[in-house]
């Protein structure tokens, strides 16, 4: 398996120790192979660093690149479990989902608050606790969170966050379902192609996406904050039509700060949005694409032998696993 990536490289987060020197690292503007390792299982792209996990060692990253902020280092030391699952929004709010010692998701105003809590007893900060649901996927956006939660019988997509950005919540806050506390997104339940199985958003973005079991992709967000790239973005989840008129079936999706990567069932890579740091791999000259655009046709030219297994996106980066 090979890891390909493109985009912002200000902290060498796309450089796994091969050619680091004193020079100021430039961004990478086309998909480039960073790493080959047949056991790669998944990656976690943070704004200034990247972690690569392998199947043999699912709890600790096998490869690390870039600069890990001290607060993240501390969290990984104090509580490796939290470090594996925490989500940090751009307004610094942090949520840790359910875990063995605390069955409820907890929310802190910032990572330092959480770190202080982990070190002292009694707790100096009372985190907000959400006792009513089990989070299976959690994703931060700039001013809030979305979560895939599993109350029976069906998984539901919940959203909560700053009421100034209701379009990201995809629901109308009311006294009974306030913006700041998790409530289900009505438009994402009982969908024609089955329940949502994956959610994606970026910790500093206002663009959100959900993928259903039946390979439909829904996107929504705050049009005002994405106007340059997604001027027609709706504040309600709407199916994305990509490729042809009927819309191709989607296998995987990854959302960055202002770009989105989509992998179709027939192994095509599509993208849209900001490319000013090369995050779509479209070269240095293309600053953005405002329509769905087919990316990286090189993989197809190799006789279709190389299959893209999955896509990930950081703030201003994109990653692919390619097989063989």
């Amino acid at each position: 398996m090979a890891l390909y990536a493109t985009g912002l490289n200000a902290w060498n987060q796309l450089d796994f120790g091969r050619n680091q020197n004193d020079q100021e690292p430039d961004d990478i503007f086309t998909f480039t192979c960073l790493l080959k390792d047949k056991n790669i299982s998944h990656i976690r792209p943070f704004p200034s660093y990247t972690l690569v996990y392998t199947t043999s060692q699912p709890l600790t990253p096998t490869h690390t690149s870039g600069l890990v902020p001290k607060s993240h280092q501390k969290l990984s030391r104090y509580n490796p479990h939290h470090y594996l699952h925490f989500a940090e929004a751009y307004n610094d709010t942090v949520v840790i989902p359910n875990h063995p010692t605390s069955p409820h998701p907890l929310q802190y105003p910032s990572l330092p608050h959480l770190l202080t809590d982990l070190l002292s007893s009694p707790l100096p900060f009372q985190p907000i606790s959400y006792p009513f649901f089990q989070i299976s996927q959690l994703s931060p956006y700039a001013t809030g969170f979305i979560a895939l939660a599993t109350p029976f019988p069906d998984p539901q997509v919940y959203s909560w966050g700053d009421p100034r950005f209701t379009p990201c919540l995809a629901r109308h806050p009311s006294p009974t379902s306030q913006a700041e506390s998790p409530s289900p997104i009505p438009d994402l339940s009982s969908l024609p192609t089955g329940p949502v199985i994956k959610i994606s958003s970026c910790s500093s973005g206002y663009l959100l996406a959900a993928l259903t079991l039946g390979n439909d992709l829904y996107i929504w967000g705050h049009a005002g904050r994405c106007a340059e790239w997604f001027p027609d973005l709706s504040d309600r989840p709407e199916p994305a039509v990509i490729g042809d008129e009927a819309g191709k079936d989607i296998k995987d999706v990854a959302v960055g700060q202002a770009h989105i990567l989509v992998l179709t069932i027939d192994n095509e890579l599509w993208g849209r949005g900001d490319n000013s740091s090369g995050q779509l791999g479209l070269g240095k000259e293309t600053k953005a694409v405002k329509e769905w655009t087919r990316l990286r046709e090189v993989f197809d030219k190799n006789g279709g032998k190389q299959k893209i297994k999955g896509v990930w996106a950081g703030e201003r980066t994109s990653f692919l696993f390619v097989e063989p």
Binding site: A89, Y90, N91, A142, T143, D162, R164, S204, R225, Q257
Partner: peptide, 11 residues
């Protein structure tokens, strides 16, 4: 752009 984004994320 990173700091400007913070101006929005916070009141």
């Amino acid at each position: 752009s990173a700091s400007y984004n913070k101006f929005y994320a916070y009141l």
